[in-house]
Simulated scan of single mutants.
Amino acid sequence: MARHGSAVRTLPRSGRLPLPPARGPLSDALTTFLLSAGGEPRQEDLMRLAQRAHTVDVLRDEDVQLTLLLLYELHHEGIDQVVDDLEWDLGLLWVRADLEMALQRSLQVLVHGRHGFGRGTRPEFLTGPARVDAELVALATARDATGLTAHLALDADLEQFREFFVHHSLHHLVPFREVHSGDPRGTSGVSTTRTTIDLGLDDAHGAYVSRLPATSLAAVNTATMFGLHRRDRGALAGHLAFSHLSSPSLGTAVGDGLRRLGLRGGATGSSAPETQPAQPGPDAGTGRELVASLLAAEPELAADVVFGARAGASLARLVAEEVLGAWSAGTSSLLPADHHDDAPDSHQVLRLVGRRPRG
């Protein structure tokens, strides 16, 4: 099988995100701005470049998703070589808000289609905590139409498992990680810390961010966006509930596949993923209880809860389809190690926004 090189990589463990290569004019302009501590390009130039997010397929756009990830990381662990003072830079906050608006619209289309109901509405079939809970369980326990769980359990080779864990390597960064207190699993329900070491992967913070394609970054960015905004508290609760409810099926498939390869797995038991949808595990109650408590206090958030869960399910399906599509074609599902997506250098960026470089 053709590969873009081994997924294994070792990086300095500073705790901050290593600054990845830019993937287009927007992320290159942002990188220049961050490294110059806000000197170049001007904030208004960044804002102008951010407008392209409203004209592209945001969920699959490498440039937009990497830019949004870097903007979020300013609020988390920080970025190598970037001063912390930029966390609350007003221009960057404006750019982030513009990209979030584009992401929200793309999620609406992904979940409901171009003419579906929007957030904040209350379709009759979604009213009431019991109906919402039934919808969450149905989403999480539905048969995996992509075939990813079956492939992991029955057919995936060692390199494919490495790639799978690389795709999930940023899931621990989302803001609701505290809810998992004491639980080594990320929002995917997969035990990543021990298994990444078993597979020879680097568990340093952001070690593989430069290898993750746009859809994998979009899954992380969506969860982060939900967690950062009070307006999205319903969507966050639904997203978290879906993650908890769907973890048994994926975790069991991963465990079965790793044991098949003679490695320790992150799950116990066995399954027949191609025919039997899993039932919610004991930790699924955390998400469901959160939703029940939220809706008891704010029943008007029912549609937002279901939106968040459907967004999680739709993004998981999108990532799985792309990963399996690459594997079926005999190629890697990760970006090549030297991926730059023909990003322009800083002088080209300044020319793109109509300014001459200094000096």
Rank of each mutant, 00 (worst) to 15 (best):
S106H: 14
L126H: 02
D157I: 00
L93G: 01
L86Y: 05
A140S: 09
M101H: 09
L152W: 01
P129Y: 08
G91F: 12
P123G: 03
L152G: 03
A97C: 05
D89Q: 10
D84E: 15
A138Y: 06
R119Y: 02
L110D: 14
S106Q: 09
R122Y: 10
A130T: 13
L99F: 15
V109W: 14
D144N: 01
V109D: 11
L92D: 09
L110K: 14
L139W: 14
L126Y: 04
V95D: 14
D133P: 02
F117T: 07
M101G: 15
D80V: 13
W94D: 07
D80S: 01
A142W: 15
V95F: 12
W88G: 01
T141E: 11
G91E: 13
A142R: 13
L136Y: 12
Q104C: 05
E87C: 13
S106A: 15
Q108R: 14
T146K: 04
F125M: 04
A130M: 07
L86H: 05
G120S: 15
T141D: 05
V137M: 05
D84I: 04
V83R: 08
A138S: 02
A140R: 06
H151V: 08
T146N: 04
V132A: 07
A140Y: 13
A130R: 03
R131M: 11
H112G: 05
D157V: 00
A130P: 03
G116S: 07
P129H: 10
T149G: 02
D85P: 00
V111G: 06
R143G: 03
V132N: 00
L99E: 13
D157G: 07
G116H: 05
R96E: 14
A142N: 08
R119D: 01
A138G: 01
V82D: 12
L139H: 15
G147M: 08
H151D: 01
W94M: 05
L107A: 03
P123E: 06
D85W: 13
R96D: 02
D98P: 05
L152A: 04
A145S: 15
R131H: 11
W94T: 11
A153Q: 10
G113L: 00
E87I: 01
D84S: 11
G120A: 12
I79W: 05
R105K: 10
D80N: 08
D84F: 10
